[in-house]
């Protein structure tokens, strides 16, 4: 009985390790492919815009900005 319980637990654990299946099928991703759904809809402009903030704030990092404009005050 104890061995059977262990077997059931082991199978359950292995089942938990199974790779998750994509829950959004490729044919459902039309909206996601819309340019409006990009986090940066114009990377070049966003880079400059973010830089304007970065050089005037004490923080940096984990953003999608990457320079542009001088930091000189």
């Amino acid at each position: 009985m104890r061995r059977r319980t262990l077997l059931v637990l082991a199978l359950a654990a292995l089942g938990g390790c199974a790779a998750p299946q994509p829950w959004v099928a490729p044919y459902e991703r039309e909206t996601l492919a819309d340019p409006m759904m990009l986090f940066s809809r114009n990377a070049f402009m966003d880079k400059h815009r973010q830089h304007v903030f970065d050089v005037r704030e004490g923080s940096r990092g984990a953003g999608d900005g990457d320079g542009g404009g001088c930091g000189c005050n």
Binding site: H51, D54, V55, R56, G63, D66, G67, G71
Partner: peptide, 12 residues
């Protein structure tokens, strides 16, 4: 100001 901060942004 901002020179050092700007350089850090180059890394970003």
């Amino acid at each position: 100001t901002g020179k050092t901060r700007y350089a850090g942004l180059l890394g970003q």
